[in-house]
């Protein structure tokens, strides 16, 4: 286990989350980046992706527990609650299952920049809007 990120973070700084080896291919994990919940996925090809953990269609923080896959060439994550499918590259919802997101939530997921340095996974939160 590497550093935790319980201190309030500064939006421009990347945050170390965990060792790369702690991630099992295609099995997501959740992480707390400040008070934001992030879902992180290491795919079979070794790449790492991060999106918001909040599922906009159920309002529950569960995306890290969904099934990874692909639609065409786009790597995807399917929500474990109502099975909507999102792009891990852009956060776009590719399959809505004919449903609307919960009031106040956007259909598109927030995507976080990730990098792996010295075997440690880092997340860079986007600058405040």
């Amino acid at each position: 286990m590497t550093t935790t990120a319980s201190a309030p973070h500064d939006h421009t700084t990347r945050v170390a989350v965990c060792a790369y080896d702690r991630l099992t291919p295609d099995l997501g994990v959740a992480a707390l980046v400040g008070d934001t919940q992030v879902a992180i996925f290491r795919l079979a090809d070794g790449t790492v992706h991060a999106v918001q953990n909040l599922c906009p269609f159920s309002g529950a923080y569960v995306l890290s527990r969904g099934i990874t896959g692909s639609k065409g060439d786009v790597p995807t994550i399917a929500s474990p609650i109502y099975k909507q499918v999102f792009s891990l590259l852009t956060g776009e919802c590719l399959v809505t299952m004919d449903k609307e997101p919960k009031p106040g939530l956007s259909t598109t997921l927030e995507v976080f920049a990730v990098d792996v340095e010295d075997g440690v996974v880092h997340i860079t939160p986007p600058p405040p809007a």
């Binding site: 099995l27 159920s58 529950a60 099934i67 474990p80």
Partner: peptide, 21 residues
């Protein structure tokens, strides 16, 4: 083997996910 990643969350954690996760 590599089967955990194949399963829906319910099978993966051997419990039934409810509406709040």
């Amino acid at each position: 083997q590599d089967r955990a990643a194949l399963q829906d969350t319910n099978d993966r954690v051997m419990a039934n996910m409810q509406k709040d996760g």
